[in-house]
Amino acid sequence: MTEEILDASGRAKRRAQRIAFFTFTFMSFFVIAILLVILSFIIIRGIPAISWEFLTEMPKDGMTKGGIFPAIIGTLCLVAGSMLFAFPVGVMSAIYINEYAKSSWVKRFIQMMTNNLAGIPSIVFGLFGMALFVNRFGFGDSILAGSLTLGLLALPVVIRTTEEALKSVDDSFRIASIALGASKWQTTSLVVLPIAFPNIITGLILSIGRVSGETAPILFTVAAYFLPKLPSGIFDQVMALPYHLYVISTSGTDLKASREMAYGTALVLIVIVLIVNLLANWLRKYFGNKVKLH
């Protein structure tokens, strides 16, 4: 390259490249900067609000003081409930698509429907959850109705990641297992699933992140404005972090008094997302190295 004759056109070409590459680099770092601005804004404003009391106490004085404990527990309940539904169904569905479905037409159809489900806006899930679970099935506003609605929302995420995980398992494992006389289910459960397991768990963790931050689906299916009590069953309502942030940042008779609570709640939500993402990445890396060793 150094011996290249730097004629006029060559110089122009390289200058164009330098400008273009500089622009791209600049824009990429701009994208990263956006994230950093949002994160640091929430963190800097939110940290003063965080204390042990904030995390473990009930809201007080018209939700301008006290803590957000019931909202944290509520969100945990909803996450657990939705995953209890979405994880087994999603994994089984992906196993069916990847390991069992014989005709490619069926496979394509299910995949297409899954993609469609993934594209449906979250507010439509809210409408649907209200019409089916709350009204038709008569669950009322409850953890059950909210969890099922969120579970349906998370289903495509679980299916897709599980499918990817199963696909990445080399066919030689399956062939070897079948050749040794194992049945299809034995092959799937004893050979394929253990290898794919780390990636499946990564998908699970990512969908937990998604579910814990959704507001629109729980608006009309479970979320309570004020309920300073922990749920005692699946037909109870709960407070939830995202909805709590929404109400204390837009309603209430004194917004300024609850602003600090709002920053704190936003920070807790962000931290959950951060943990979920870091955990997923760490798992991916950890098991990624391990699987390669085999």
């Binding site: 608006l219 979320a223 309570a224 404005y225 004020f226 309920l227 009590k229 309502q237």
Partner: peptide, 8 residues
């Protein structure tokens, strides 16, 4: 006593 307050 427990009182649940829900908006909407």
């Amino acid at each position: 006593s427990t009182i649940t307050v829900t908006g909407g």
